[in-house]
Design a protein around this nucleic acid. Structure first.
Length: 502
RNA sequence: GGCCCCAUCGUCUAGUGGCCAAGGACACUACCCUCUCAAGGUAGAGACACGGGUUCGAAUCCCGUUGGGGCUGCCA
């Protein structure tokens, strides 16, 4: 299905290409150190598809001791917005994908693009076009091959004030050599004379993208598969600019990330920004780990990996062909695994830092780091996201717990509740204040009225934490302290009395 | 419509002609563990889209069909 890379280097490369390769013999560094770029356009918030592309570029650069370049493709001043640019920057920062060069702004490189345009014009590769979209559509309505009909191709129109089109060869094909797809052939007759610059003179994507790639010495173009159809256009431009014998970059078109309807993830249609994941308490390393598994897999099949492990085994050749659905459920599970991988003190530090800016129900100055440190390891082994910590520890930092109404009501109609609370008030005021002793005391209490521990602890749990589920009760009580526990039991008794229906 | 890409459990994938009565992970089910909830452990259910070839032998190679997707902008 996919020809080996070296099979085509011998077979279909022209002699000139081989000569080109020979020039680099001895020039060790330029030939062995790859240069890749992540080139987002600031036309929407940063979503997971962009993150995956950025990650794969970064992984490839790190694996091969190459250079990872960030280039903002902001040539469309109509759609670009400055806040989207900072969104890109902060997303990359959160992901931990630091770039070695950039951020370059394409809009600041217009002199370069203008120069390329002039060279192409002078070389006869371009022609001016005065048609507008409506006219073209009108003329080509019934055509077999869609797109521009070449109306102005031989008109010899003056360049000024007109859009410029590339004179696509009528015959022949352009072959895209792609590491993940193999050789992909595009017949020229199915390619239109595409526009390279607008009537106002500003360059379009294909042009600016290629000119900048050439200028920056990009060796590997790693991007989404949606860009595959525009690649032959880029190659045509590349050859027009650099000569047909030029050494093209290695292309790697990554399979699309799709939504539940198997459509390409879109900024408008699938509003899941990266910000959401950091706000929900996903760990960037877990996020990257999960993302790395979308279209790529470790040769051993290992899934839970550190960034270092991923870097060490990452390779473009191992990327698969099919689109992948971004599954938040699996991401969440993996996030939990990464949380559990953390050293206890690291978890305490990172999670408390996250809590610091998260929406929490307690007053900020009621948060107590010493208490948190004591409970953190218990929380660590049962949450999948940092956001799940909040309801699990809130009762430590609240004056009185947030009561689960359903729990209160069901306990209030239960006779044993009152008994247990009364007994608990008594026994907890006398017993040793330690998890084991509290465990025994509660079990003994249950024994007296023939209740299993699971039943006997329930009212106590609700009284102390406000909820039916939570961290281990006796450890929590030990940390909370005898006074506060007793106070909550009293308050709870009153609450139950008030709630009890006659 | 045209061009291009893709096709293994619900999902992400392993698989590059025999080691596959198809392996792993998430989700699901049952059980174990257990003070609740998780975590953890064990077991289970679950897929090669279809049809033709090639071959002693095909999930793997070829052709076709079907299905899905991408592109088709003076967006990127």
């Amino acid at each position: 299905m996919r020809p080996a890379l070296d099979s085509w280097s011998l077979r279909d490369l022209p002699g000139a290409f081989l000569a080109q390769e020979l020039r680099y013999v001895g020039a060790v560094d330029t030939n062995t150190s790859p240069r890749v770029r992540f080139a987002p356009s600031p036309t929407g918030y940063f979503h997971v598809g962009s993150a995956r592309t950025a990650l794969f570029n970064w992984l490839f650069a790190r694996r091969n001791h190459g250079t990872f370049i960030l280039r903002i493709e902001d040539t469309d001043e109509e759609r670009g917005r400055e806040e989207w640019v900072s969104g890109i920057l902060s997303a990359l920062a959160w992901l931990g994908l630091e770039y070695d060069e950039g951020p370059y702004r394409q809009s600041e490189r217009s002199a370069l693009h203008a120069d390329a345009l002039t060279r192409l014009w002078d070389g006869g590769y371009l022609y001016a076009c005065g048609c507008n979209r409506e006219e073209v559509l009108e003329r080509t309505k019934g055509n077999q091959t869609p797109g521009y009909d070449g109306h102005c191709r031989e008109l010899g129109l003056a360049r000024e004030g007109r859009a410029l089109r590339f004179r696509t060869p009528r015959d022949g094909i352009t072959v895209v050599k792609d590491v993940v797809r193999g050789l992909v052939e595009f017949p020229h007759r199915a390619m239109e004379d595409f526009v390279v610059s607008k009537a106002n003179g500003s360059p379009l994507f294909v042009l600016a993208n290629v000119v900048d790639d050439i200028d920056m010495g990009i060796t590997h173009v790693i991007r989404g598969e949606d860009l595959l159809p525009s690649t032959p256009k880029g190659i045509l431009l590349w050859k027009a600019l650099e000569g047909s014998a030029v050494e093209l970059p290695v292309f790697a078109h990554l399979p699309m990330l799709v939504n539940e309807k198997r459509q390409k993830l879109s900024k408008r249609r699938d509003p899941v920004s990266l910000e959401y994941f950091s706000e929900q308490g996903y760990l960037p390393e877990a996020f990257c780990n999960y993302l790395s598994l979308l279209g790529w897999s470790h040769p051993s099949g290992k899934e839970l990996m550190t960034m270092e492990e991923i870097i060490q085994s990452f390779s473009l050749e191992d990327i698969n062909h099919s689109p992948a659905f971004f599954d938040v459920v699996k991401l969440t599970h993996m996030n939990g695994e990464h949380i559990r991988l953390l050293d206890a003190d690291v978890f305490a530090a990172r999670s408390s830092a996250w809590l610091d800016t998260a929406p929490v129900p307690w007053a900020r100055d009621h948060f107590d780091m010493d208490t948190y440190r004591r409970i953190a390891h218990i929380v660590q082994e049962r949450v999948a996201t940092l956001a799940e910590i909040i309801p699990m520890v809130d009762f430590f930092f609240l004056e009185s717990p947030i009561y689960d109404q359903a729990a209160i009501e069901s306990l209030a109609t239960n006779d044993t509740t009152r008994k247990i609370v009364t007994m608990a008030l008594d026994i907890y005021s006398r017993c040793t204040w330690a998890p084991d002793a509290l465990h025994e005391a509660t079990a003994a209490m249950g024994n007296e009225i023939a209740l299993k521990l699971s039943r006997a602890q329930a009212p106590v749990r609700v009284a102390v934490t406000g909820k039916r589920v939570g961290p281990p009760l006796f450890e929590s009580m030990a940390i909370l302290g005898r006074e506060r526990v007793l106070a909550r039991l009293h308050a709870f008794a009153a609450l139950v009395a008030r709630t009890t229906p006659e």
